[in-house]
Amino acid sequence: MQTFDLEAQGLRALNQALHNLKGQTNETSWEVVNPKGSHAIAVGVDAPIDITVRGSTGYYCAGMNKQATIRVKGSAGPGVAENMMSGTVIIDGDASQYAGATGRGGLLVIKGNASSRCGISMKGIDIVVHGNIGHMSCFMAQSGNILVLGDAGDALGDSLYEAHLFVRGSVKSLGTDCIEKEMRPEHLAIIADLLKRGEADHLAKPSDFKRYGSARKLYTFNIDNASSY
């Protein structure tokens, strides 16, 4: 276990040490203490390592993550796991705005609530939120899955492309071109897998959820609208 005191050693030293780990390494287990809400903790990691942050983080924690498993034992500020490529990020507390934004892959788990714009423009990431998500979540989400055990705020999935949205609780309002869709067996299988990987299979079952997706009226070419393009 490598223990890194962020207050004493500084952010650049932490991220440089993590970036130096390429391919196989024996330093597979890292602990970051005294994060104190600092920005950009463990951004751009590209190695199959485990990192545990003991406390709450500020902006952009775990951004652009590849391969690593990053746990935050606290809450995360805006932009956690932004543009994640692969690996896993688990937030024990809440996440602020635009968690998992533009994520290309990997798994983001938020055990508390996520605020506005969760999964905005997601492109392949899987997101599991044990609590609620705020307004404008999954705006222009392109692909990937989001599973919400609680409620969703206003304008869920506005201008949605092909991401799968699963919500157990209420949805305050659906965004433009986002509709409720039928739940088929393959969707129940996706949910079961997300519940398991999202450490939530003891909290809900697949049949509890409703599926939302794109009505495909906004982003597909429609000959009747040719004069508007």
Partner: peptide, 13 residues
């Protein structure tokens, strides 16, 4: 003991 506000959590630590 208090109610506190911060633009970021850093301000409260």
């Amino acid at each position: 003991q208090y109610v506190a506000f911060g633009s970021e959590y850093r301000a409260l630590v």
